[in-house]
């Protein structure tokens, strides 16, 4: 790493955009997800859980959450940034209340039915990424 890179990294840390962990450019499955399936996952309160905290363009869903930004704000993010935020948002902000959807290690007191499992599978995450990138 040269001087210029080091300064760029230092700057990005200062302004809150971590250099590593901000983006996962590559698909977790190597394939593109399906936006229609992704929308269904996001809307499902037992599967995606997203609407417990977020709101979004779901006129048919009552009682959406008010704890986190509207999902339409994903429009300002790249596909890789969206993927990183779903996989593990605590990499960007250790205080984040958003669960890491693709993590099964380093968790405490997980109920037996969920132990060793991620909240969503790699395929489901790609579906959600595909859906969220349509929100412009």
């Amino acid at each position: 790493m040269n001087w210029r890179e080091a300064c760029a990294i230092a700057f990005s840390i200062l302004v809150g955009n971590a250099f590593a962990g901000d983006s996962i450019p590559a698909s977790l499955t190597g394939a593109k997800g399906d936006p229609a399936r992704g929308r269904a996952i996001v809307a499902n309160r037992q599967v995606g859980l997203c609407l417990l905290c977020h709101s979004g363009p779901f006129p048919e869903e009552r009682f959406q959450g008010g704890l986190a930004p509207d999902l339409r704000s994903a429009a300002r993010l790249s596909e890789g940034q969206i993927r990183q935020r779903i996989v593990d948002s605590t990499k960007l902000n250790p205080q984040s209340i958003m669960p890491a959807y693709y993590r099964s290690e380093g968790l405490e007191r997980v109920a037996p039915a969920y132990r060793g499992k991620t909240i969503l599978s790699a395929e489901q995450i790609e579906d959600v990424v595909a859906y969220l990138t349509t929100l412009k």
């Binding site: 309160r45 859980l49 609407l51 417990l52 905290c53 009552r62 009682f63 959406q64 959450g65 008010g66 704890l67 605590t90 209340i97 669960p99 890491a100 993590r103 099964s104 968790l107 405490e108 007191r109 997980v110 109920a111 969920y114 499992k117 909240i119």
Partner: peptide, 21 residues
């Protein structure tokens, strides 16, 4: 838990918010 949340994160830090309405 799998959702990796502490009681305090909701009930101290976000008590004025709404969870699923």
């Amino acid at each position: 838990g799998q959702l990796n949340l502490a009681c305090a994160q909701c009930h101290d830090d976000h008590w004025s918010g709404k969870l699923a309405g």
